[in-house]
Write a protein that binds this DNA or RNA. Structure first.
Lengths: 342, 342
DNA sequence: TTGAAAGCGCTAACAC
DNA sequence: GTGTTAGCGCTTTCAA
């Protein structure tokens, strides 16, 4: 079934049929009806490949992620897929195995396939930069969740500092005074921003708090290990840079016999599905995933309109605090019943 | 940069360049070298769209899933992406929101984009059948993880019955004698097969065991709710049809003050990342995800060779039991210290 | 408003 | 082994 068949069946030219079906130009009402009827009758389906070759636009968007198994990404992928599908675009998925070299290879494979645009969560702030910049010069590209150096491309992410501030305000309001922080080392923007925001905000609770921290990576294992380093200081709150760290911290605290939340509160970041399932359920910062996806799609369209020059837009979306059991009521600081001035 | 440019630069015809670069036919060693050098020098990148239009093969595979947020799928997607990328294919991702109508729409969108093949985890055994059968008539199609009625398409999945048998054997070996089962209702193949395998295997432990079960869905919430129904019967093992159910069961049992694993063992199925993080860590059945992906890719190639006729192949892969704390040593049945004959 | 015709970049017959 | 040629199905000038 090609345009030619429809043209033959409807008694007009291929060009006219194309115009009717693609809606490119005004066509006589009568002709249009005839053509549409013929197309319908023959079950005509346009050939996207031919259309792409001619119009130099495939209608596909490449989605490049560090690791689909990172539990924060599936919901994001889902929202992105829906947002793009709603505009009639298809999503080419690439998983980079958390490796910048693989990432560079995937990016060029997608470019070779003529994706119209790229949505990319960079593997690494520094090591991804070169490949990302090169790609951004070729197609509209929007960075998601993580940055990649200033001025490289448009980007959309949650406001990490605001999220951390929400956590600290909540801890302060519920009477916690000796927080500590388990974060991630390295230059990844989420790691740096959350860490910095903790240091800036925690001083208000306790002058010694900003120094009470340990930096590792965004994993459960690190959460467990870090507790062993920080617990001797007897914090009354463990602020974690993401939910995986918090899950590990929770586990280890329980093994050590600590009472969560009575003795010590634990908080996460991201609100991955695991957070609600932990025991006690994890207080955390929810990323506005659907909004992130919508905003990314919007930036993509805008960039397509503006051309590859023009300044980079950076969008920061406000997160939301989700209070659950892990930061519930603290036990009295002096549990023997004596009076304590608050 | 087109073939024409390379042809001009290397002094031979477009066709020859095509043959060298696509490796379609034997070419003189000398010519080949010249051509390759020219292509390299000019930074030639083949245009996949034009190639697809001409050769009627896009080199893309559609991957259709019920919901990427189902925690079992990300690892599978990752393995599939890697397996396909290794053969130079790109993956078009479609998420169906667990809805058969959306699934049908996504399938036809992918078909319109001329995917070479479809990898599909059906949303529903019955309601997906029509769209799947129609798609299978057009392109090679392999069903993954779940079935879709007999004879519809090639399929690859874990051997659910074998997995359940491993669980029951383990429970028997560790002295459990009053198992119960929390499963999922409906016709989904995993639900039916695991349920049936439990009924068949549990009778060996206890004649009453096959009847001690509750059927709901594959969710944490159902796991919690089912415990309330089954716990009054005082089982010494709760066999769950997947890890999410088991996570819910574990939660609720702890709320009820039950001692896991001392008083009651809990087992899951799939070995999603959550399983290792639960407390106590969950004994479960690990799906051979990488093998499933590899086998799916293999079936796809074979189907491409065989043509769309020919009998459907069904591959079942052996699962592996992962023993963790949730099925550890049982407490003595009579904890008051009196002698108990084993 | 419509039609004829020229390709998009590539592969695949078919000649030589 | 290599070149010539004819399209794949579509969009888009350019004329009418």
């Amino acid at each position: 079934m090609t345009l030619k068949d429809v043209a033959l069946a409807s008694g007009c030219s291929i060009a006219t049929v194309s115009r009717v079906l693609a809606g490119t130009r005004s066509v006589g009402a009568e002709t249009a009806r005839t053509v549409r009827a013929a197309a319908e009758r023959l079950g005509y389906r346009p050939n996207h490949v031919a259309r792409a070759l001619r119009s130099r636009s495939t209608g596909t968007v490449g989605l490049v992620l560090p690791q689909i198994t990172n539990p924060f990404f599936p919901t994001l992928v889902r929202e992105l897929e829906h947002a793009l599908h709603a505009e009639g675009r298809a999503v080419l998925l690439a998983d980079c195995d958390d490796d910048p070299a693989t990432e560079a290879a995937r990016i060029s494979a997608l470019l070779a396939r003529q994706v119209d645009a790229l949505l990319l969560i960079p593997v690494d702030e520094r090591h991804s930069r070169e490949a990302v910049a090169a790609a951004a010069a070729q197609v509209p590209l929007v960075l998601l969740d993580r940055g990649c150096g200033p001025g490289v491309a448009d980007s959309v992410a949650v406001d990490n500092a605001a999220g951390m501030a929400l956590v600290l305000a909540h801890l302060a309001a519920t009477g916690r005074r000796r927080p500590c922080f388990i974060g991630a080392a390295g230059t990844a923007s989420a790691a740096v921003e959350r860490h910095t925001a903790y240091e800036n905000g925690a001083a208000a609770l306790d002058p010694a708090a900003p120094g009470r921290l340990a930096l590792g990576d965004f994993s459960v294992e690190w959460g467990r290990a870090a507790v062993d380093r920080l617990w001797p200081a007897r914090p009354d709150a463990v602020v974690c840079a993401n939910d995986l760290i918090a899950a590990g911290a929770l586990q280890r605290l329980r093994q050590l016999g600590a009472d969560v939340p009575g003795e010590v509160a634990v908080t996460g970041f991201d609100d991955i599905p695991l957070a609600g399932l932990a025991d006690p359920a994890l207080t955390t910062v929810r990323q506005p995933v659907a909004d992130l996806a919508a905003e990314a799609a919007r930036l993509l369209s805008r960039r397509r309109a503006d051309g590859s020059s023009g300044p980079c837009h950076t969008v920061r979306l406000a997160p939301e605090l989700v209070v659950r059991a892990s930061s519930g009521a603290a036990a009295p600081a002096v549990p023997d019943g004596s009076f304590r001035a608050s």
